[in-house]
C-alpha cells in the first residue's frame, strides 16, 4: 500500500517546514488522516497527489509515485481538494463528466454517461443532474465534487475533508458509500477528516499527525484514539469509551489549555 518515506516540505525557502522527514505507512481499505488545524493533513494529501515539490519518496505497491508523470498519477489516483468556492455555471451532469476527462471524447459515450448517472444515483443527487452547479447549496456542491472524484476508476482515492458542509445523514451515507466502493472496486481510500467519532466508526486504519507536522501514531481506531492522544495531539481533555460495536467514541470535556490556566 501507500508508503511515504522521509517527506520534507515547506511552502517556500524562508518558511518553516510543514514536514521534516515524516514517514507514514497507509493500509489497504479505508484510511483516515486525523490531526489538528495546521498539522499539514491537506498538504500531505496534496504531496501524495503530486501537486507539491517535496523531498523524499512516496511508493505505492513498489511503484515510485514521486517519479510518475502527471498523466500516470491521474490514472492511479483520484483527488478531491478541499475547497468550496466555485462559480462554474456548468450543469451537474457536465461537471461530473469532467471527472472522466482523460477518456472523454467530443461525443460523450454511453459508457461515460452511465458511469456518471450511476454515481449520481449512488450519492442520491441524480435529480440535480440538469441543474446549474452555481445554483446548488454548499452541501450539494460538495456531493457533486465527490461524484466527480468517484467517476474515475483509480487505485487510490484521496479525499480532503469530504464531509465538510454535509449534514449528519449525508456524512454517514458518504462513509458507507466509501466502504462499499472499497469492497466493490477494490480501491484504497485516504480521507482527511475532522470528526474523530466518524473516523473511529468507519476507518480501517487511522494516521494521526501532530500540530508540528510530525507522525504521532497509526493503527486501528481503538488503538489510536485514546485519552492520551486527545491530550497530546489536540490539547483536549476528554474520555474515550467503547460503544456496543467495540468502536471508540470520544467525548471532549474541555481544552487542556483551560486547565493549565486555572
Amino acid at each position: 500500500m501507500l508508503k511515504v518515506n522521509n517527506l520534507k516540505f515547506s511552502y517556500g525557502k524562508d518558511r518553516a517546514c510543514v514536514f521534516d522527514n515524516i514517514s507514514i505507512e497507509f493500509n489497504k481499505g479505508f484510511n483516515v488522516i486525523l490531526g489538528p488545524n495546521g498539522a499539514g493533513k491537506s498538504t500531505l494529501v496534496k504531496a501524495i497527489f503530486g501537486l507539491l515539490n517535496y523531498r523524499g519518496t512516496i511508493y505505492y505497491n513498489c511503484k515510485n509515485v514521486s517519479e510518475m508523470k502527471t498523466c500516470e498519477k491521474v490514472e492511479l489516483m483520484s483527488y478531491l481538494p478541499q475547497m468550496d468556492l466555485d462559480i462554474s455555471s456548468l450543469t451537474v451532469l457536465e461537471m461530473v463528466l469532467l471527472g472522466r476527462l482523460p477518456e472523454l471524447s467530443r461525443r460523450v459515450s454511453d459508457k461515460d454517461l452511465n458511469i456518471v448517472m450511476d454515481t449520481l444515483k449512488d450519492l442520491n443527487i441524480h435529480e440535480l443532474s440538469m441543474k446549474k452547479f452555481n445554483e446548488l447549496s454548499g452541501g450539494q456542491k460538495k456531493l457533486v465534487f465527490i461524484a466527480q472524484t468517484l467517476v474515475r476508476n483509480p487505485e487510490i482515492i484521496l479525499l480532503d475533508e469530504p464531509t465538510n458542509s454535509l449534514d449528519l445523514q449525508k456524512q454517514l451515507e458518504l462513509c458507507q458509500l466509501l466502504g462499499k466502493i472499497i469492497k466493490v472496486r477494490n480501491v484504497d481510500i485516504i480521507v482527511v477528516l475532522h470528526d474523530i467519532n466518524l473516523a473511529a466508526r468507519h476507518a480501517d486504519h487511522i494516521v494521526v499527525i501532530t500540530s508540528q507536522g510530525d507522525y504521532y501514531n497509526s493503527g486501528a481506531a481503538k488503538d489510536v484514539i485514546t485519552e492520551k492522544m486527545l491530550r497530546d495531539v489536540y490539547g483536549v481533555i476528554g474520555s474515550v469509551n467503547l460503544d456496543d460495536e467495540n468502536k471508540p467514541v470520544i467525548s471532549a470535556k474541555k481544552s487542556a489549555r483551560d486547565s493549565c490556566d486555572t
Binding site: T70, V74, Y79, L90, L98, T149
Partner: peptide, 24 residues
Amino acid sequence: LFKNAWKLTAMTLDDTKARSIGVD
C-alpha cells in the same frame, strides 16, 4: 481550441480542482 474543448471546460474550475482531474 475545439480539440481542447474538454480541457478548456475544466478551466472553469478552481486551479487545484482542474489539476486534480489531470489538466495541466
